[in-house]
Design a protein around this nucleic acid. Sequence first.
DNA 1: TCTTATTTGTTCGTATGTATT
DNA 2: GAATACATACGAACAAATAAG
Lengths: 263, 263
Amino acid sequence: MTVDAPKSRYRQVADLLRRDITLGKYPPGSTLPSEQDLASEVGVSRVTINRALQILRAEGMVRVLRGRGTVVRSVPPIDRHSNRRYARAAREEHGARGAFDAEIRRLGLIPRSDIVQLEPVDPPEAAAKALGLDPGDRVLIRKRHMYASDEPVLLATSYIPWALAEQAGVTNKNTGPGGTYSRLAELGQGPVRFTEDIRARIPTDDEEAFFDLAENQQIFEIIHMSWTVDDRPVEYRIDALPTFQWILHFEWPAEVVNPDGRS
Amino acid sequence: MTVDAPKSRYRQVADLLRRDITLGKYPPGSTLPSEQDLASEVGVSRVTINRALQILRAEGMVRVLRGRGTVVRSVPPIDRHSNRRYARAAREEHGARGAFDAEIRRLGLIPRSDIVQLEPVDPPEAAAKALGLDPGDRVLIRKRHMYASDEPVLLATSYIPWALAEQAGVTNKNTGPGGTYSRLAELGQGPVRFTEDIRARIPTDDEEAFFDLAENQQIFEIIHMSWTVDDRPVEYRIDALPTFQWILHFEWPAEVVNPDGRS
DNA sequence: TCTTATTTGTTCGTATGTATT
DNA sequence: GAATACATACGAACAAATAAG
């Protein structure tokens, strides 16, 4: 134990407010006193209160609404179980959106998923490279907005080579029982291996608007790829998730070592 | 494309500086002009410059040193390949610190790992619960500071039931060839399954000091657990990693579904 | 060691802009 | 339109860390 590092005022105020919230002085859904009132109460300037609230925003503890006030958030973190998500059994049992549905319902919330884009496009560079496409090759883009009880929680954008998508008949909203993966499997192009690369970053302007984030909040960016038995990629997907409302779960056996030559 | 959303000044300044950095006007390792100079140059107040720099800090693009200046960072993101990390073959080939070593050396950096704590202690509540300990049971704490070319990049704290640690003879710094897991395996308590729960959060005061972070930066918190063939946990570990310097990689086969009853 | 200049960190008062009620 | 509430911006001032002498 060292001596208490002297803390700046706005951080002390943040600690104070966090404590008050967790202790129930301001229960979930309630509105905090205005910044002006808090300033008088605590004895600091309004700018300092504002800065303290920035921290609580970054933590996802409050939601600040301009002109209205600052409300205490109530969203429990959602567990994303990556392995379970793509198990063939789970897919065929619950349908294409089964995994997301289950993740949300488990918390007593209501899942919703809107397809906002579904068409052939020229792929972004990262997708073209990852999928090993030739110049001029097009892809099927499939972009979804996903909600938990009307709170936006996930933005998923997937890219599949257009030729393959047409052949598999997954260019419509309804991809049939088991979803896209099952259609690909019927062509002998079903995924047998998945990879995910995870990083955290500042949101783009789009994401900031969709999730209603402050620029000091971060999102998980998950690059999800599906591989065939021939070790060829058939899907490149970017999932964007606000960090404060998700916990990512993985599990794997110690023995199964993938020989793979890629580094 | 919508009309350009009008951006606040500090964000425009952040965009400007980010562009200058990526375009090479301020190469890695160089020092930016002082906030005062930038303020005059750009034509905004110093407070606005300061706020813009907060954003670049959160992105890990610059490192701000009070009294000295603001330097452009040069650390490339490190790839953490979780599955490969705990493969038995990799462990026995490279030794206990093999995975971390390889991750760092791959980038041309020099790895270092200091054990800063290694002793029996009363477990924190989360660890006791996760390990299924009885009240009064102690644990071996093993806390490590890890560096890449003297930059702090990882803080690892592991907890192993003390009785088990003693029996396996892993209470010293030198745990022998293959490390702790190999000693446990010799007792029939070797891990056969791993789980990791990942979230991102604001750093604690300790972490902030160790990594030299601003409070608007976030860290990955990875709860790593090792399970025996009897499905009992033998290790509870918390890894803390600044989000901006890591990419987490996972992969798994589509077919292997773990039956497990836990939800 | 002490002093001074430089540089970033924090805070305030004040003012103005924008969104909501 | 008026009142309320958060967002941004500036200038000024002082605190704290560092570097140069």
